[in-house]
Amino acid sequence: MRQQSLRIVLRLLAAIGGGYAVAAGLAALTAVILFVTGGLPRSEAVILASMLAFIFYLALLLWAFAERSLLRLCSMLVAAGVVSWGAAIGLMRLVGGS
């Protein structure tokens, strides 16, 4: 019983906190890619990615509660978070900040 409540708390943290961080990372990466590749002006890229962020978060939330393995959930979230944030920040550095 105790272990089960702990698992639920962990899952809530992973879904709400982790899902948010990954959604923000994916959106930031989308904005940076659109901007860096010259697809869109900077403000346009930011707005498009910001609107998509809510859809990313929704999908991540639903998946976080559907995924049966808590371990797989957490490791995927960490991996996606590191990759998206790393790539977004790296790409911004590459083109020389603002």
Binding site: V32, A45, M92
Partner: peptide, 28 residues
């Protein structure tokens, strides 16, 4: 949610605009 995107996902504009709100508001 989309109305308040800049409150809910501040990092998405802060990263490309280097945290400069003034610049972001001017361009947008």
């Amino acid at each position: 949610l989309i109305i308040f995107f800049s409150i809910y996902f501040p990092s998405v504009w802060q990263l490309p605009f280097d945290g400069k709100r003034e610049l972001f508001n001017r361009e947008t």
